[in-house]
Design a protein around this nucleic acid. Structure first.
Lengths: 226, 226
DNA sequence: ACCCGACAGTACCGATCGGTACTGTGACAG
DNA sequence: CTGTCACAGTACCGATCGGTACTGTCGGGT
Protein backbone atom coordinates (compact mmCIF):
# COMPACT_ATOMS: atom_id res chain seq x y z
CA UNK A 1 0.00 0.00 0.00
CA UNK A 2 2.74 2.42 0.95
CA UNK A 3 4.08 4.01 -2.19
CA UNK A 4 7.09 5.64 -0.65
CA UNK A 5 6.95 9.39 -0.48
CA UNK A 6 3.96 10.96 -2.12
CA UNK A 7 4.75 14.63 -2.70
CA UNK A 8 1.09 15.66 -2.69
CA UNK A 9 -0.74 12.40 -2.76
CA UNK A 10 -4.19 13.82 -2.42
CA UNK A 11 -3.71 17.54 -2.59
CA UNK A 12 -5.38 17.26 -5.96
CA UNK A 13 -8.27 15.44 -4.40
CA UNK A 14 -8.67 18.10 -1.75
CA UNK A 15 -8.49 20.85 -4.34
CA UNK A 16 -11.21 19.20 -6.39
CA UNK A 17 -13.38 18.60 -3.35
CA UNK A 18 -12.99 22.16 -2.11
CA UNK A 19 -13.88 23.54 -5.51
CA UNK A 20 -16.88 21.28 -5.83
CA UNK A 21 -18.04 22.21 -2.34
CA UNK A 22 -17.88 25.87 -3.14
CA UNK A 23 -19.58 25.61 -6.52
CA UNK A 24 -22.24 23.17 -5.37
CA UNK A 25 -23.10 25.36 -2.42
CA UNK A 26 -23.21 28.48 -4.51
CA UNK A 27 -25.34 27.31 -7.40
CA UNK A 28 -26.65 23.85 -6.56
CA UNK A 29 -25.56 20.38 -7.54
CA UNK A 30 -27.52 20.21 -10.77
CA UNK A 31 -26.41 23.62 -11.97
CA UNK A 32 -22.70 22.79 -11.86
CA UNK A 33 -21.07 20.37 -14.28
CA UNK A 34 -18.06 18.22 -13.68
CA UNK A 35 -16.26 19.99 -16.49
CA UNK A 36 -16.52 23.27 -14.65
CA UNK A 37 -15.42 21.72 -11.39
CA UNK A 38 -12.34 20.21 -12.96
CA UNK A 39 -11.49 23.37 -14.85
CA UNK A 40 -11.98 25.62 -11.82
CA UNK A 41 -9.93 23.31 -9.65
CA UNK A 42 -7.17 23.30 -12.27
CA UNK A 43 -7.53 19.56 -12.59
CA UNK A 44 -8.32 17.19 -15.40
CA UNK A 45 -11.46 15.16 -15.54
CA UNK A 46 -9.24 12.11 -15.33
CA UNK A 47 -8.06 13.22 -11.91
CA UNK A 48 -11.55 14.04 -10.83
CA UNK A 49 -12.86 10.63 -11.82
CA UNK A 50 -9.91 8.92 -10.22
CA UNK A 51 -10.88 10.20 -6.80
CA UNK A 52 -14.61 10.43 -7.32
CA UNK A 53 -15.91 7.72 -9.66
CA UNK A 54 -19.16 9.59 -10.15
CA UNK A 55 -20.57 13.02 -9.52
CA UNK A 56 -22.66 11.61 -6.70
CA UNK A 57 -19.53 10.55 -4.86
CA UNK A 58 -18.39 14.13 -4.99
CA UNK A 59 -21.65 15.27 -3.43
CA UNK A 60 -21.49 12.63 -0.73
CA UNK A 61 -17.90 13.42 0.14
CA UNK A 62 -18.70 17.10 0.28
CA UNK A 63 -21.68 16.67 2.60
CA UNK A 64 -19.91 14.21 4.82
CA UNK A 65 -16.88 16.44 5.21
CA UNK A 66 -19.09 19.46 5.73
CA UNK A 67 -20.98 17.77 8.53
CA UNK A 68 -17.71 16.84 10.23
CA UNK A 69 -16.41 20.38 9.93
CA UNK A 70 -19.55 22.07 11.22
CA UNK A 71 -19.87 19.89 14.26
CA UNK A 72 -16.21 20.03 15.12
CA UNK A 73 -16.48 23.80 14.96
CA UNK A 74 -19.66 23.92 17.01
CA UNK A 75 -18.31 21.57 19.62
CA UNK A 76 -14.97 23.28 19.89
CA UNK A 77 -16.43 26.73 20.34
CA UNK A 78 -19.19 25.98 22.80
CA UNK A 79 -17.38 23.66 25.17
CA UNK A 80 -16.06 26.28 27.55
CA UNK A 81 -19.29 28.07 28.46
CA UNK A 82 -21.06 27.28 31.72
CA UNK A 83 -24.64 27.28 32.90
CA UNK A 84 -27.40 28.12 30.43
CA UNK A 85 -24.76 29.74 28.26
CA UNK A 86 -23.64 26.27 27.37
CA UNK A 87 -26.76 25.94 25.28
CA UNK A 88 -27.20 29.52 24.21
CA UNK A 89 -23.61 29.65 23.01
CA UNK A 90 -24.64 27.21 20.33
CA UNK A 91 -27.28 29.66 19.13
CA UNK A 92 -24.85 32.54 19.29
CA UNK A 93 -22.44 30.64 17.15
CA UNK A 94 -25.10 29.65 14.66
CA UNK A 95 -26.40 33.19 14.45
CA UNK A 96 -22.89 34.34 13.71
CA UNK A 97 -22.64 31.71 10.98
CA UNK A 98 -25.97 32.64 9.42
CA UNK A 99 -24.81 36.24 9.23
CA UNK A 100 -21.85 35.30 7.06
CA UNK A 101 -21.97 37.02 3.69
CA UNK A 102 -22.89 34.49 1.08
CA UNK A 103 -24.74 32.26 3.49
CA UNK A 104 -27.78 30.75 1.88
CA UNK A 105 -28.87 27.79 3.88
CA UNK A 106 -27.36 24.69 5.40
CA UNK A 107 -25.34 22.94 2.73
CA UNK A 108 -26.62 19.60 3.94
CA UNK A 109 -30.27 20.53 3.75
CA UNK A 110 -29.66 22.03 0.33
CA UNK A 111 -27.83 18.88 -0.71
CA UNK A 112 -30.75 16.70 0.32
CA UNK A 113 -33.08 18.86 -1.72
CA UNK A 114 -30.75 18.78 -4.70
CA UNK A 115 -30.36 15.00 -4.69
CA UNK A 116 -33.80 13.97 -3.57
CA UNK A 117 -33.55 10.25 -4.20
CA UNK A 118 -30.06 9.44 -2.94
CA UNK A 119 -30.41 7.32 0.21
CA UNK A 120 -26.76 7.78 1.12
CA UNK A 121 -27.13 11.54 1.13
CA UNK A 122 -30.26 11.15 3.22
CA UNK A 123 -28.29 9.06 5.71
CA UNK A 124 -25.61 11.72 5.97
CA UNK A 125 -28.28 14.30 6.67
CA UNK A 126 -29.92 12.15 9.34
CA UNK A 127 -26.56 11.63 11.00
CA UNK A 128 -26.02 15.38 10.84
CA UNK A 129 -29.23 16.02 12.76
CA UNK A 130 -28.38 13.29 15.21
CA UNK A 131 -25.11 15.04 15.95
CA UNK A 132 -27.07 18.16 16.78
CA UNK A 133 -29.10 16.18 19.27
CA UNK A 134 -25.99 14.75 20.82
CA UNK A 135 -24.46 18.18 21.15
CA UNK A 136 -27.60 19.79 22.56
CA UNK A 137 -28.29 17.03 25.05
CA UNK A 138 -24.75 17.27 26.30
CA UNK A 139 -25.01 21.03 26.68
CA UNK A 140 -28.32 20.62 28.49
CA UNK A 141 -27.00 18.14 31.00
CA UNK A 142 -26.54 19.44 34.50
CA UNK A 143 -28.94 22.31 34.03
CA UNK A 144 -31.78 20.64 35.85
CA UNK A 145 -33.81 20.20 32.73
CA UNK A 146 -36.79 17.93 33.13
CA UNK A 147 -36.61 16.20 29.78
CA UNK A 148 -33.37 17.08 28.00
CA UNK A 149 -34.18 14.90 25.03
CA UNK A 150 -37.50 16.57 24.37
CA UNK A 151 -36.00 20.01 24.78
CA UNK A 152 -33.11 19.24 22.47
CA UNK A 153 -35.56 18.19 19.81
CA UNK A 154 -37.36 21.49 20.15
CA UNK A 155 -34.12 23.43 19.99
CA UNK A 156 -33.17 21.59 16.81
CA UNK A 157 -36.36 22.84 15.19
CA UNK A 158 -35.33 26.37 16.05
CA UNK A 159 -31.89 25.84 14.52
CA UNK A 160 -33.13 24.41 11.26
CA UNK A 161 -36.00 26.86 11.10
CA UNK A 162 -33.69 29.81 11.60
CA UNK A 163 -31.41 28.57 8.85
CA UNK A 164 -34.27 28.41 6.40
CA UNK A 165 -35.87 31.69 7.41
CA UNK A 166 -32.59 33.59 7.34
CA UNK A 167 -32.02 32.32 3.83
CA UNK A 168 -35.45 33.24 2.54
CA UNK A 169 -35.81 36.57 4.29
CA UNK A 170 -32.32 37.68 3.45
CA UNK A 171 -31.85 39.12 6.92
CA UNK A 172 -30.30 37.66 10.05
CA UNK A 173 -33.20 38.46 12.33
CA UNK A 174 -34.24 34.85 12.55
CA UNK A 175 -30.96 33.95 14.23
CA UNK A 176 -31.71 36.27 17.14
CA UNK A 177 -35.30 35.07 17.20
CA UNK A 178 -34.11 31.49 17.54
CA UNK A 179 -31.85 32.45 20.41
CA UNK A 180 -34.68 34.22 22.20
CA UNK A 181 -36.99 31.27 21.71
CA UNK A 182 -34.31 28.90 22.95
CA UNK A 183 -33.83 30.98 26.09
CA UNK A 184 -37.56 31.00 26.71
CA UNK A 185 -37.87 27.26 26.25
CA UNK A 186 -34.86 26.74 28.45
CA UNK A 187 -36.37 28.86 31.20
CA UNK A 188 -39.73 27.17 31.12
CA UNK A 189 -38.14 23.75 30.95
CA UNK A 190 -35.98 24.13 34.04
CA UNK A 191 -37.35 22.20 36.98
CA UNK A 192 -39.06 24.14 39.72
CA UNK A 193 -36.67 22.94 42.40
CA UNK A 194 -32.96 22.96 43.20
CA UNK A 195 -30.56 24.92 41.05
CA UNK A 196 -33.23 25.35 38.47
CA UNK A 197 -34.27 28.71 39.79
CA UNK A 198 -30.84 30.03 39.08
CA UNK A 199 -30.95 28.59 35.60
CA UNK A 200 -34.41 29.87 35.04
CA UNK A 201 -33.62 33.36 36.20
CA UNK A 202 -30.41 33.42 34.29
CA UNK A 203 -32.11 32.19 31.16
CA UNK A 204 -34.86 34.73 31.60
CA UNK A 205 -32.25 37.41 31.78
CA UNK A 206 -30.48 36.01 28.77
CA UNK A 207 -33.70 36.09 26.82
CA UNK A 208 -33.68 39.85 26.85
CA UNK A 209 -30.16 40.14 25.56
CA UNK A 210 -29.75 41.41 22.05
CA UNK A 211 -26.58 40.03 20.57
CA UNK A 212 -23.78 37.71 21.38
CA UNK A 213 -21.34 39.45 23.69
CA UNK A 214 -18.23 37.90 22.24
CA UNK A 215 -17.27 36.47 18.90
CA UNK A 216 -15.29 33.44 19.92
CA UNK A 217 -14.00 32.42 16.53
CA UNK A 218 -13.74 33.40 12.98
CA UNK A 219 -17.15 32.72 11.52
CA UNK A 220 -17.46 29.78 9.22
CA UNK A 221 -17.11 30.20 5.50
CA UNK A 222 -20.27 30.12 3.39
CA UNK A 223 -19.88 26.43 3.03
CA UNK A 224 -18.93 25.91 6.66
CA UNK A 225 -16.21 26.72 9.13
CA UNK A 226 -12.66 26.30 7.99
CA UNK B 1 -60.82 39.75 -25.39
CA UNK B 2 -63.91 37.59 -25.34
CA UNK B 3 -63.54 34.86 -27.90
CA UNK B 4 -67.09 33.61 -27.71
CA UNK B 5 -67.42 30.24 -26.09
CA UNK B 6 -64.17 28.63 -25.04
CA UNK B 7 -64.87 24.96 -24.46
CA UNK B 8 -61.88 24.57 -22.13
CA UNK B 9 -60.03 27.84 -22.42
CA UNK B 10 -57.27 27.03 -19.98
CA UNK B 11 -57.97 23.52 -18.91
CA UNK B 12 -54.84 22.67 -20.82
CA UNK B 13 -52.91 25.27 -18.87
CA UNK B 14 -54.17 23.88 -15.58
CA UNK B 15 -53.34 20.35 -16.64
CA UNK B 16 -49.81 21.37 -17.53
CA UNK B 17 -49.36 23.32 -14.31
CA UNK B 18 -50.69 20.49 -12.18
CA UNK B 19 -48.39 18.01 -13.86
CA UNK B 20 -45.41 20.28 -13.49
CA UNK B 21 -46.22 20.89 -9.84
CA UNK B 22 -46.35 17.21 -9.14
CA UNK B 23 -43.19 16.32 -11.03
CA UNK B 24 -41.20 19.28 -9.76
CA UNK B 25 -42.15 18.51 -6.19
CA UNK B 26 -41.36 14.84 -6.58
CA UNK B 27 -37.98 15.04 -8.25
CA UNK B 28 -36.90 18.67 -8.27
CA UNK B 29 -36.97 21.37 -10.91
CA UNK B 30 -33.68 20.48 -12.53
CA UNK B 31 -34.40 16.77 -12.70
CA UNK B 32 -37.56 17.17 -14.75
CA UNK B 33 -37.51 18.27 -18.37
CA UNK B 34 -40.17 20.19 -20.21
CA UNK B 35 -40.54 17.28 -22.61
CA UNK B 36 -41.57 15.01 -19.79
CA UNK B 37 -43.96 17.57 -18.37
CA UNK B 38 -45.69 18.03 -21.71
CA UNK B 39 -45.84 14.30 -22.37
CA UNK B 40 -47.14 13.47 -18.90
CA UNK B 41 -49.74 16.22 -19.11
CA UNK B 42 -50.81 14.93 -22.50
CA UNK B 43 -49.96 18.25 -24.04
CA UNK B 44 -47.64 19.41 -26.75
CA UNK B 45 -44.63 21.57 -26.12
CA UNK B 46 -46.33 24.20 -28.22
CA UNK B 47 -49.16 24.37 -25.72
CA UNK B 48 -46.76 24.42 -22.82
CA UNK B 49 -44.79 27.31 -24.25
CA UNK B 50 -47.96 29.17 -25.14
CA UNK B 51 -48.94 29.42 -21.48
CA UNK B 52 -45.48 29.41 -19.97
CA UNK B 53 -42.92 31.15 -22.17
CA UNK B 54 -40.07 29.57 -20.23
CA UNK B 55 -39.53 26.82 -17.74
CA UNK B 56 -38.95 29.42 -15.05
CA UNK B 57 -42.46 30.76 -15.55
CA UNK B 58 -43.76 27.31 -14.85
CA UNK B 59 -41.83 27.21 -11.60
CA UNK B 60 -43.02 30.65 -10.56
CA UNK B 61 -46.64 29.88 -11.36
CA UNK B 62 -46.39 26.64 -9.43
CA UNK B 63 -44.92 28.25 -6.32
CA UNK B 64 -47.29 31.16 -6.40
CA UNK B 65 -50.33 28.95 -6.72
CA UNK B 66 -48.99 26.61 -4.07
CA UNK B 67 -48.56 29.45 -1.60
CA UNK B 68 -52.13 30.59 -2.23
CA UNK B 69 -53.46 27.10 -1.75
CA UNK B 70 -51.56 26.38 1.44
CA UNK B 71 -52.56 29.59 3.15
CA UNK B 72 -56.16 29.40 2.09
CA UNK B 73 -56.24 25.91 3.54
CA UNK B 74 -54.51 26.93 6.77
CA UNK B 75 -56.73 29.95 7.24
CA UNK B 76 -59.93 28.12 6.47
CA UNK B 77 -59.25 25.28 8.87
CA UNK B 78 -57.96 27.21 11.85
CA UNK B 79 -60.46 30.06 11.94
CA UNK B 80 -63.04 28.44 14.16
CA UNK B 81 -60.88 27.49 17.14
CA UNK B 82 -60.86 29.65 20.24
CA UNK B 83 -58.35 30.48 22.94
CA UNK B 84 -54.84 29.07 22.67
CA UNK B 85 -56.23 26.47 20.31
CA UNK B 86 -56.40 29.18 17.71
CA UNK B 87 -52.64 29.02 17.49
CA UNK B 88 -52.10 25.37 18.24
CA UNK B 89 -54.63 24.41 15.60
CA UNK B 90 -52.17 25.73 13.07
CA UNK B 91 -49.57 23.31 14.37
CA UNK B 92 -52.05 20.46 14.41
CA UNK B 93 -52.88 21.13 10.82
CA UNK B 94 -49.26 21.37 9.79
CA UNK B 95 -48.41 18.17 11.63
CA UNK B 96 -51.19 16.47 9.77
CA UNK B 97 -49.81 17.80 6.51
CA UNK B 98 -46.25 16.69 7.27
CA UNK B 99 -47.55 13.19 7.94
CA UNK B 100 -48.96 12.91 4.44
CA UNK B 101 -47.38 10.05 2.51
CA UNK B 102 -45.04 11.46 -0.06
CA UNK B 103 -44.38 14.63 1.89
CA UNK B 104 -40.80 15.71 1.54
CA UNK B 105 -40.53 19.33 2.50
CA UNK B 106 -42.26 22.58 1.75
CA UNK B 107 -42.50 22.95 -2.00
CA UNK B 108 -41.63 26.61 -1.71
CA UNK B 109 -38.48 26.06 0.29
CA UNK B 110 -37.49 23.30 -2.11
CA UNK B 111 -38.22 25.59 -5.03
CA UNK B 112 -35.98 28.30 -3.63
CA UNK B 113 -33.20 25.78 -3.24
CA UNK B 114 -33.72 24.46 -6.75
CA UNK B 115 -33.66 27.88 -8.38
CA UNK B 116 -31.14 29.63 -6.21
CA UNK B 117 -30.64 32.77 -8.24
CA UNK B 118 -34.17 33.63 -9.31
CA UNK B 119 -35.21 36.83 -7.49
CA UNK B 120 -38.86 36.38 -8.40
CA UNK B 121 -38.93 32.96 -6.77
CA UNK B 122 -37.23 34.46 -3.74
CA UNK B 123 -39.93 37.13 -3.58
CA UNK B 124 -42.65 34.51 -3.67
CA UNK B 125 -40.96 32.70 -0.81
CA UNK B 126 -40.64 35.87 1.25
CA UNK B 127 -44.30 36.62 0.71
CA UNK B 128 -45.08 33.07 1.76
CA UNK B 129 -43.33 33.56 5.08
CA UNK B 130 -44.98 36.92 5.52
CA UNK B 131 -48.35 35.24 5.18
CA UNK B 132 -47.38 32.91 7.99
CA UNK B 133 -46.64 35.90 10.17
CA UNK B 134 -49.95 37.49 9.33
CA UNK B 135 -51.79 34.30 10.15
CA UNK B 136 -49.93 33.70 13.40
CA UNK B 137 -50.26 37.26 14.63
CA UNK B 138 -53.97 37.15 13.97
CA UNK B 139 -54.33 33.87 15.84
CA UNK B 140 -52.31 35.30 18.72
CA UNK B 141 -54.44 38.39 19.08
CA UNK B 142 -56.68 38.51 22.09
CA UNK B 143 -54.66 35.95 24.00
CA UNK B 144 -52.93 38.50 26.17
CA UNK B 145 -49.57 37.92 24.56
CA UNK B 146 -46.96 40.48 25.45
CA UNK B 147 -45.29 40.75 22.08
CA UNK B 148 -47.32 38.90 19.44
CA UNK B 149 -44.97 39.84 16.67
CA UNK B 150 -41.92 38.41 18.42
CA UNK B 151 -43.78 35.26 19.34
CA UNK B 152 -45.08 34.77 15.83
CA UNK B 153 -41.53 34.96 14.54
CA UNK B 154 -40.48 32.26 16.96
CA UNK B 155 -43.41 30.09 15.99
CA UNK B 156 -42.49 30.45 12.34
CA UNK B 157 -39.07 29.02 13.11
CA UNK B 158 -40.76 25.99 14.64
CA UNK B 159 -42.93 25.53 11.56
CA UNK B 160 -40.10 25.71 9.05
CA UNK B 161 -37.80 23.72 11.29
CA UNK B 162 -40.35 20.95 11.69
CA UNK B 163 -40.86 20.79 7.94
CA UNK B 164 -37.15 20.29 7.36
CA UNK B 165 -36.61 17.84 10.21
CA UNK B 166 -39.62 15.73 9.27
CA UNK B 167 -38.26 15.48 5.75
CA UNK B 168 -34.75 14.50 6.79
CA UNK B 169 -35.65 12.16 9.63
CA UNK B 170 -38.38 10.45 7.68
CA UNK B 171 -40.64 10.42 10.72
CA UNK B 172 -43.35 12.79 11.82
CA UNK B 173 -42.05 13.26 15.36
CA UNK B 174 -40.87 16.76 14.63
CA UNK B 175 -44.44 17.89 14.01
CA UNK B 176 -45.46 16.96 17.53
CA UNK B 177 -42.26 18.46 18.88
CA UNK B 178 -43.08 21.74 17.20
CA UNK B 179 -46.52 21.74 18.68
CA UNK B 180 -45.16 21.10 22.15
CA UNK B 181 -42.60 23.87 21.77
CA UNK B 182 -45.28 26.22 20.52
CA UNK B 183 -47.45 25.47 23.52
CA UNK B 184 -44.52 26.10 25.86
CA UNK B 185 -43.64 29.37 24.20
CA UNK B 186 -47.28 30.37 24.25
CA UNK B 187 -47.53 29.65 27.96
CA UNK B 188 -44.40 31.54 28.90
CA UNK B 189 -45.34 34.44 26.67
CA UNK B 190 -48.76 35.03 28.17
CA UNK B 191 -48.81 38.07 30.43
CA UNK B 192 -48.85 37.55 34.16
CA UNK B 193 -52.08 39.42 34.61
CA UNK B 194 -55.68 39.34 33.42
CA UNK B 195 -56.96 36.44 31.38
CA UNK B 196 -53.44 35.31 30.80
CA UNK B 197 -53.56 32.81 33.59
CA UNK B 198 -56.32 31.00 31.83
CA UNK B 199 -54.36 30.99 28.62
CA UNK B 200 -51.23 29.96 30.39
CA UNK B 201 -52.86 27.12 32.24
CA UNK B 202 -54.69 26.02 29.17
CA UNK B 203 -51.54 26.13 27.12
CA UNK B 204 -49.67 24.25 29.77
CA UNK B 205 -52.31 21.58 29.66
CA UNK B 206 -52.22 21.55 25.89
CA UNK B 207 -48.47 21.07 25.98
CA UNK B 208 -48.91 17.60 27.40
CA UNK B 209 -51.35 16.49 24.78
CA UNK B 210 -50.14 13.92 22.34
CA UNK B 211 -51.96 14.28 19.07
CA UNK B 212 -54.58 16.37 17.42
CA UNK B 213 -57.99 15.32 18.71
CA UNK B 214 -59.81 15.92 15.47
CA UNK B 215 -58.87 15.87 11.84
CA UNK B 216 -60.72 18.88 10.57
CA UNK B 217 -60.08 18.41 6.88
CA UNK B 218 -58.71 16.10 4.33
CA UNK B 219 -54.94 16.45 4.61
CA UNK B 220 -53.21 18.29 1.83
CA UNK B 221 -51.73 16.45 -1.07
CA UNK B 222 -47.96 16.04 -1.23
CA UNK B 223 -47.73 19.25 -3.16
CA UNK B 224 -50.25 21.02 -0.96
CA UNK B 225 -53.92 20.95 -0.08
CA UNK B 226 -56.35 20.55 -2.91
C1' DA C 1 19.61 6.11 -17.85
C1' DC C 2 15.27 4.05 -17.23
C1' DC C 3 10.59 3.59 -15.91
C1' DC C 4 6.28 4.57 -13.87
C1' DG C 5 2.63 6.90 -11.66
C1' DA C 6 0.26 11.32 -11.20
C1' DC C 7 -1.12 14.82 -13.67
C1' DA C 8 -3.28 18.65 -17.23
C1' DG C 9 -5.25 19.02 -21.46
C1' DT C 10 -8.30 17.69 -24.97
C1' DA C 11 -11.08 15.21 -28.05
C1' DC C 12 -14.92 12.53 -27.99
C1' DC C 13 -19.15 9.65 -26.74
C1' DG C 14 -24.37 9.11 -26.42
C1' DA C 15 -27.96 11.29 -24.11
C1' DT C 16 -30.66 14.94 -22.75
C1' DC C 17 -31.42 19.62 -22.00
C1' DG C 18 -34.58 24.09 -23.08
C1' DG C 19 -36.63 26.01 -26.85
C1' DT C 20 -38.40 26.49 -31.94
C1' DA C 21 -40.77 25.19 -36.08
C1' DC C 22 -43.86 22.76 -38.59
C1' DT C 23 -47.00 19.38 -39.34
C1' DG C 24 -52.02 17.31 -39.16
C1' DT C 25 -56.56 17.27 -36.99
C1' DG C 26 -60.83 18.17 -34.96
C1' DA C 27 -64.27 21.66 -33.30
C1' DC C 28 -66.65 25.53 -34.00
C1' DA C 29 -68.25 30.08 -36.60
C1' DG C 30 -69.43 32.36 -40.65
C1' DC D 1 -67.84 24.59 -47.40
C1' DT D 2 -64.24 27.37 -45.52
C1' DG D 3 -62.01 30.05 -42.40
C1' DT D 4 -59.76 30.02 -37.81
C1' DC D 5 -58.54 28.52 -33.65
C1' DA D 6 -56.44 25.36 -29.94
C1' DC D 7 -54.40 21.47 -29.84
C1' DA D 8 -51.24 16.82 -30.05
C1' DG D 9 -47.48 15.01 -32.23
C1' DT D 10 -42.96 15.16 -34.03
C1' DA D 11 -38.78 16.53 -36.00
C1' DC D 12 -35.19 19.41 -35.09
C1' DC D 13 -31.81 22.99 -33.17
C1' DG D 14 -27.42 24.19 -30.58
C1' DA D 15 -25.69 23.54 -26.14
C1' DT D 16 -24.42 21.03 -22.37
C1' DC D 17 -24.66 17.12 -19.58
C1' DG D 18 -21.91 12.93 -17.15
C1' DG D 19 -18.48 9.93 -18.33
C1' DT D 20 -14.50 7.65 -21.22
C1' DA D 21 -10.24 7.49 -23.75
C1' DC D 22 -6.05 9.03 -25.12
C1' DT D 23 -2.54 12.11 -25.50
C1' DG D 24 1.97 14.48 -23.66
C1' DT D 25 4.65 15.91 -19.72
C1' DC D 26 6.78 16.18 -15.49
C1' DG D 27 9.13 14.38 -11.34
C1' DG D 28 10.91 11.21 -8.32
C1' DG D 29 12.71 6.23 -7.34
C1' DT D 30 15.53 2.69 -8.79
Amino acid sequence: MAKGVLPNPSATRARILDTATSLFYERGVHAVGVNEIAATAGASKLSLYRYFPAKTDLVRAMLSEHSDRIHAWLDRNTASATGPDRVLAVFDLLTQWFAQPGYHGCAIVNGVTDTRADPEVAAIARAHLHRYHTLLEDRLSGLGIEDPRALSRQLLLLIEGASVVVTIEGTTDAGADARAAAAALLASSAKAAGTCEIVRESARHEATRQVAPHLPTQPPSPAGPR
